[in-house]
């Protein structure tokens, strides 16, 4: 048991120890391991798979764990055209995700309906979900998706205090 009136970092005494706020630490953990829930619907899903493959390694950003379970994932990457028939499924899956959760709308079809302006296509997934990052392209290059992930990470780190989202009984 050591009591010390010294506050701050003294490397001789404390060694490799960093003092910070709990919120910042938790957000830093979250930022570097956003586990995506790939809602891979159409052609953008192939670029999503390419981003996860070995050339454009999404694992560098901690996001290679593409769990298809919504309960275990943080960000839903909606990649591909969302039709009305699929929209209720996307909404249901999104509702099952646990807080905190984010959404990346990848590609033109997910952002705005893309070039399919027809009777069965939802004109943008932001009509049913709150979207954090939109990625343009048809399909966007994997590097664009990685850029979106970095932008999402900046949003995560700037999030409000995380204590509020921990529902303590």
């Amino acid at each position: 048991m050591r009591t010390s009136s010294e506050i701050g970092y003294n490397s001789k005494v404390e060694g490799d120890l960093v003092v910070t706020r709990l919120d910042a630490a938790l957000n830093w953990f979250r930022k570097n391991s956003v586990w995506p829930m790939p809602m891979g619907l159409a052609c953008c899903a192939i670029e999503l798979m390419a981003a996860g493959a070995s050339r454009y390694d999404i694992s560098r950003f901690g996001a290679e764990v593409m769990r298809f379970s919504p309960r275990q994932s943080d960000v839903m990457i909606v990649s591909g055209t969302v039709t009305y028939k699929m929209a209720r499924v996307v909404k249901r899956v999104y509702d099952q995700m646990t807080e905190p959760k984010w959404v990346i709308a990848m590609g033109a079809c997910a952002s705005t309906g893309g070039m399919y302006r027809s009777y069965s296509v939802l004109q943008g997934v932001d009509r049913i979900l709150p979207v954090n990052v939109y990625v343009a392209g048809c399909p966007p290059r994997p590097e664009a998706l990685l850029d979106a992930l970095i932008k999402l990470q900046e949003q995560v780190i700037a999030k409000e205090p995380v204590i509020a989202t921990l529902k303590v009984a």
Binding site: L41, T83, K85, V89, Y116, S118, S120
Partner: peptide
């Protein structure tokens, strides 16, 4: 099937 029906033929 039909979850990705985009209406190509009508387009």
């Amino acid at each position: 099937v039909g979850y990705l029906h985009r209406g190509d033929e009508k387009i």
